[in-house]
Simulated assay, not measured.
Amino acid sequence: MDSILRLLGLVLVTLALLNLYYFRRWKRPVSVNYHFTRRCNKTCGFCFHNATTSYMEQPDQAKTGLRLLKNAGMRKINFAGGEPFLYPKFLGEMIDFCKEDLRLESVSIVTNGSLVTEKFIKKHGSNIDILAVSCDSFHEDTNIEIGRGSGNQVPQLYKIGVWCRQYGIKFKINTVVCRLNHQEDMNKHIDVLQPFRWKCFQVLIVAGENDSSSTLRDGRKFLITDQEYQGFCQKHSRQKSLVAESNRLMAKSYLILDEYMRFLDRDGRQPSAPILQVGVRKALQSVYWDEKAFKDRGGIYDWSRKEGSCSEVNQGLDW
């Protein structure tokens, strides 16, 4: 009997060690981009997350999914679309939940800026760490040609920059470098706006989203060469806030959760099962996520309103 008990104990210890090893090695969703809607009030010609559905998760279900992500290791959430400010009530509720209930280190939003109001910022700003506004040109005619502008993109960007400083939110600018703007010199405006982070993406083609005349958007006409993209980055290299993301770094390094709370695969056509059905770990196992590229592109940075949070973020990562 004693030998059987010893053997059983050895088996249990072995299983516990294997489980601990597996837990330490499985991919943890440190930073997640939740595209809770595909609807948008703009028509950017290169968009790779188009309004192919109008579905949006119910608030209670969305909160359940966000809690699952937090329990699985999420420390930063980024709300995106579509245009998240089309649904200010839902967005505000999720922001407050992530900060006040989940206590996430960073809550950020990516928006085209057109629907951002000071009233919203005043109500929810204390729970927003980063507000990123997409601006591809400081020439309104170029913004209009891209499909992002209606003649007031630049004044609205400046207005949001003021609100962010006023309410203690980190102000970020996202720029997609494409055929229509790669020769533009934006230094003067970046000098004035002083974003804490200026993300410059090389325009990206995603299969099934913006890669042909049969998709809602056809981004091929906006493509630029790697050399043209590098030329844009070189022109703005004196900007300390510049974060350049080429296609190589961008395509596989983002964890994107769609409106059904599924992780999207790198080609955008093979999503996981919804995390509400199978859990986060199993959903992550079914898609490709390049953790090294995530780190290489600077996916971990000082992403909280609180100073010194970056060192905390790096603790416990297995890279």
Rank of each mutant, 00 (worst) to 15 (best):
G45L: 05
G219I: 02
V32P: 03
N143Y: 02
N71L: 15
I4P: 02
C310Y: 14
D296A: 15
K119A: 13
L216Q: 11
F23P: 00
C40W: 03
N247T: 12
R305A: 12
C164W: 01
V176K: 03
L5Y: 11
C178Q: 10
W319A: 10
I300P: 01
I205G: 04
C310M: 15
G308S: 07
N152Y: 13
Q234V: 09
D318C: 11
G9K: 12
L317Y: 13
K306A: 12
V287P: 05
D265K: 03
K119T: 13
E118L: 04
D218M: 09
F294Q: 06
Q166W: 08
L223R: 04
I160W: 06
S311P: 06
T53C: 07
T52A: 13
R39K: 14
F97L: 07
Q285N: 13
S272D: 05
P271G: 01
Y22T: 07
V313S: 12
K188E: 11
V133T: 09
S241Y: 09
G81I: 03
Y158M: 11
E245R: 14
D318E: 12
F36Y: 10
F138Y: 02
E259Q: 11
F48D: 12
Q315A: 13
F79G: 00
S108K: 02
Y167D: 04
Y254M: 06
K123L: 09
K76W: 08
E307L: 15
S304E: 06
E228L: 01
V206Q: 09
K70P: 02
L66D: 00
K27T: 14
M94Q: 04
S241N: 08
S213L: 13
E57D: 07
R220I: 08
G151V: 05
V243E: 07
D318W: 12
S311R: 14
L66A: 07
S31W: 11
R248M: 11
S3N: 14
R38H: 09
Q270F: 13
I4N: 08
N187E: 13
L255P: 00
R248C: 08
Y21K: 11
F196C: 15
M74P: 00
N210R: 02
S137D: 05
K76N: 08
A251L: 15
R25T: 10
D267N: 11
G208D: 06
L242N: 00
W198Q: 03
F201H: 00
F222P: 02
F23W: 14
L180Q: 10
V313N: 10
K295E: 12
L91Y: 01
M56G: 02
K292G: 08
A51R: 03
C164R: 00
K172L: 08
C233A: 14
F23V: 10
V13L: 12
S114I: 11
R197E: 10
L249T: 07
K240R: 15
Y301P: 00
K63F: 06
K292A: 14
V176F: 02
W26I: 15
S304D: 07
F79I: 07
R75Q: 13
L242Y: 02
I130E: 10
V206K: 06
